[in-house]
Design a protein around this nucleic acid. Structure first.
Lengths: 238, 238
DNA sequence: GCGCGTCATTGTCGATCGTCAATTTCTGCG
DNA sequence: CGCAGAAATTGACGATCGACAATGACGCGC
């Protein structure tokens, strides 16, 4: 086991985790946590996999934040999804036969629990419950996309940005007395992608949100909230 | 076998179909097409299942058009997805454990191939390839949602409406000399839902599209295209 | 410390959208 | 045939957005 690792759990919150799958490896083994599981640490900006690459494994975000981005043929790109701790990445191309349709890159220092494709196939074969969990995740992704489609059509950009910031704050914000603060791991363009607007519009949205008084942004990437929305954030902490 | 049914195929284009699954039933049996398969016909407006109902089966659209609609708590509703012939409906709540999150209603007279839940479980258990196909479908739904999210953010409403109409025309349009025509099975509100705008905006979009000369709408629900986009439509015919 | 490139902001403009409301058209039914 | 209700259209308005361009701030390497 790796030093300081939780002996009862290979990679923190992990949708792949199953009692029947995971047994503690013998002491001394470092990267292989259990049969089929390995762990890796990613620096900010490091790729987990590239777009169009063949699927080699299924990944679970143990710590940090992974951004899924698709590059279009015209040279532009869109940040499609954020994978928070506990979420699975790469299941789309694992379940469907194929290549990654997105690039996965660490937006924060991240710990990833990896199950290479062959092991994943074996695990899934031996443990139907793991497959069920994978499919649940797949279904959840559909639900999430549908919610996003509905939200795009029915709520204002300001509301959607507000919701996104609160979600991020729930995961990565640090409480400081009555308020929260965090380093925003996303550029303005990234934020713009996630709610479906142009970067310039995002700048203006940020300003308007700040004028409303619920958020305050200082410099690039760093921002603070006065206590108004504290309860909202705490409610998002699980 | 049912009279006039294609003996080589239980329900026309059907993603559930598999050589190893389907054997012709004995002559005389009407609704049961093969082990686990049955068929039903839906009139326009008839429900395949209701929102919040428990999943009882997986369905495949053999003919016609099914609309998936979610009702929100505020009394409004949104048409989320159109299921064209060959597509599977109900897989979300079948794979995930749960209830339907949408209502499924026939928008055209439709033929549905039904596999009740227990049979579907057995079929999936005996035929991993069928499960694989189901998961493929699930993954495809994710892809489609992602495309829609990207399209909403990057293309104009006019473009998206145009694309939607061409898709419908490819499925249901009837060629008339150099042009196509069809009875539009969707109300203006439905169209508005599908591209994420308000009904009033849809009215204006329709008018603008008509002024551009590629489409012409007559009365409610009926519309015709002059030959300009004929090739586009033919390309969509598979 | 300087320069360069990227990112962010700001300004301006026209186009489009959402909303409210009024009007017209359509459809089903008696 | 006429009526009533729903759907569709149209008008008007303010708010917002996307596009383009210019400016400003920041980070990074030399």
């Amino acid at each position: 086991m790796t030093k300081n690792a939780d002996p009862t759990h290979p990679c923190g919150k992990c949708a792949f985790y199953s009692d029947s799958v995971w047994q503690p490896a013998e002491p001394g083994s470092v990267s292989v946590l259990a049969a089929g599981f390995s762990r890796q640490e990613l620096e900010v900006g490091q790729d987990l996999f590239e777009q169009d690459a063949e699927n080699r494994a299924v990944y679970c975000v143990s710590r940090g934040l992974i951004g899924l981005r698709t590059h279009h043929s015209n040279g532009k790109s869109t940040l499609l999804r954020l994978a928070y701790p506990g979420e699975i990445v790469g299941f789309r191309s694992f379940l469907g036969s194929g290549r990654h349709q997105t690039e996965a890159r660490a937006l924060l220092p991240s710990r990833i629990c990896t199950v290479v494709r062959r092991d994943a196939n074996r695990i899934v074969h031996d443990n139907p419950s793991v497959l069920a969990r994978l499919m649940d995740r797949c279904v959840a992704e559909i639900d999430r996309s549908h919610e996003r489609i509905i939200a795009t059509a029915t709520t204002s950009n300001k509301q959607r940005l507000s919701a996104l910031l609160l979600r991020l704050m729930g995961h990565f914000g640090e409480q400081d007395g009555d308020s929260f603060e965090m380093r925003l791991p996303l550029s303005r363009s990234d934020l713009a992608d996630l709610i479906g607007v142009q970067p310039e519009t995002m700048s203006r949205l940020v300003k308007r949100l700040q004028n409303d008084g619920n958020f305050s942004f200082s410099g690039r990437g760093v921002w603070i909230t006065p206590g108004r929305l504290t309860e909202e954030i705490l409610a998002r902490r699980s």
